[in-house]
Simulated scan of single mutants.
Amino acid sequence: MKQSLLLYKNNKHLIFQLVKRDILQRYRGSNLGLLWSFFTPLFMLIIYTYFFGFVFNNKWGGALSDNKYEFALVLFCGLLVFNFFSEIITKSPSLMVGNTNLVKKVVFPLEILPIVLTGSALFHMFVSIVILFIGVLIVGTVHWTIIFLPLVIFPVILLSLGFSWFLSSLGVFIRDISQFIGLVMQALMFMSPIFYPISVIPEKLRFIYYINPLTYVVEDVRRVVMWGVFPNWEFTLIGFLLSLMVYFLGFSWFIKTKGGFSDVL
């Protein structure tokens, strides 16, 4: 635990610079540059509003009014969580392979690369949250419970980082893991309550959703942002403890295996 905490303290300036570089590189060469990070989720929110609200005329159980824009925001709550998790998980297996020049450097702290990836994904999730907040402000009421949003999201940040350390190490030794993770994430998207509430799932199948860690985060984001109620404190605490365990296990695994990276690459 002490080693992982010192990692942030000793490399905070390097981490910041690498996160900044990663964000800017994504939009390098485009005319709008960093503005794409704002326009992309905004465009997707418009698409969700049109298709799910007006074309399919969907309704979210009895939790919402018939306001079609509110329905789109409910979808967006789930997608911003999933997109954050998916971006980190899908990129992690190729993280070391794609930075072979850094792996070969003896003095470079490789364990910060998953942190950089997480920081970049956090930036884009923050932009999506800003768009969500603006949407809620325009369409409905901004509930004071939104102050719990960072607390609700924190477990998935720890979980993503823990998996990132594990997968970035595993990807060095098993190259097929990238293809496998891509399939898993596609399945996970539809196995999470993003486009529909859990209430529509048959009772005998709901256990699948209850073992999915994203389920609780997605549901709690909607509680504090859209419904104006408290998070499920029991699941928030359990999720935090489990995510913390994955975080430290992933970090320990990475530290124990990173010595063999340069030999394989």
Rank of each mutant, 00 (worst) to 15 (best):
N11S: 13
L110G: 12
Y50M: 13
V142Y: 07
S65L: 04
N232I: 15
N83L: 04
L14W: 05
R206Q: 05
K12M: 14
M125T: 05
L244T: 03
L110M: 10
S30M: 12
M96E: 15
P197C: 10
F51I: 10
M125E: 02
V152Q: 11
S262Q: 15
K2C: 02
L110F: 11
F85P: 06
D22P: 00
E111H: 03
I138S: 07
I177W: 00
K68C: 03
I46K: 05
L5V: 10
G98R: 05
V217Q: 04
R206L: 00
K9T: 15
F207K: 02
L242N: 06
H124S: 06
N67Q: 02
V74K: 13
V116E: 01
V152A: 10
G78E: 04
F84C: 10
I153R: 09
S252N: 08
V224L: 10
F251E: 04
L42V: 07
V156K: 15
L113R: 01
F123L: 07
I208Y: 03
F154E: 12
F126L: 03
V264I: 09
S262L: 14
I177Q: 02
L7V: 11
F195H: 03
G162P: 00
Y247F: 06
T141D: 11
V152N: 15
T145R: 15
R28E: 10
W253V: 14
L137I: 11
M226D: 15
V224Q: 13
K68G: 04
G78V: 07
V218K: 07
C77P: 09
F126C: 04
G62P: 03
L34W: 07
C77R: 07
F43P: 08
L14T: 07
F180A: 11
S94N: 13
M1E: 08
K91V: 12
P109F: 07
L117E: 00
G29I: 08
F71I: 09
Y210I: 11
H143V: 13
L80V: 05
I255N: 04
N99M: 14
Q17C: 02
L244G: 11
R26D: 08
Y50H: 10
